[in-house]
């Protein structure tokens, strides 16, 4: 509806610039970096859970062993699933901060140079308003 319509018209004006960016080695490299991380990470993490379920099927006695008081191995592993979920998300977050954002910034700066020569306003406006928002949140992040 209205939301998507407005947005497609916004991007339509910058079509040529976008096409150039898409063709650039930098953008293609960024996409590669992203895919090279996201897909193996997803597969590995799903495999880890499915394998864990399978292991419990073959290590029943072990799973029932008590660790502390009433808490058995199965329960401890259950808790570790929460920990591993958080750990993968944390690693992804760090990786994205280190590898995606700097490249994205570099492409943006390059595009800003390009954009000033083309008479296209919507993209320029958004490009210039975005950085302050990012600065603001990165401060919030360090506090949180």
């Amino acid at each position: 509806m209205s939301t998507t319509d407005t947005r497609s018209s916004t991007s339509a004006g910058g079509g040529e610039t976008f096409a150039q960016v898409q063709a650039s080695d930098e953008f293609q490299g960024l996409k590669r970096t992203l895919r090279r991380f996201v897909f193996p990470a997803t597969v590995l993490f799903l495999a880890w859970y499915l394998l864990y379920v399978l292991l419990t099927a073959y290590a029943r006695g072990f799973m029932a062993d008590k660790v502390v008081g009433e808490v058995n191995v199965a329960y401890v592993f259950g808790l570790l699933q929460f920990v591993s979920t958080f750990a993968i998300a944390y690693v992804y977050s760090q990786y994205a901060d280190r590898h995606f954002d700097p490249t994205a910034d570099a492409i943006r700066h390059r595009l800003e140079g390009t954009v000033t020569t083309t008479p296209h306003t919507p993209t320029t406006t958004t490009t210039t308003t975005a950085p302050p928002t990012i600065d603001l949140t990165s401060k919030t992040e360090t506090r949180a």
Partner: peptide, 13 residues
């Protein structure tokens, strides 16, 4: 491109 381009390129209110 819109889905995968770095955000500042496509971010609009």
């Amino acid at each position: 491109l819109r889905l995968h381009a770095p955000e500042p390129l496509v971010l609009s209110p």
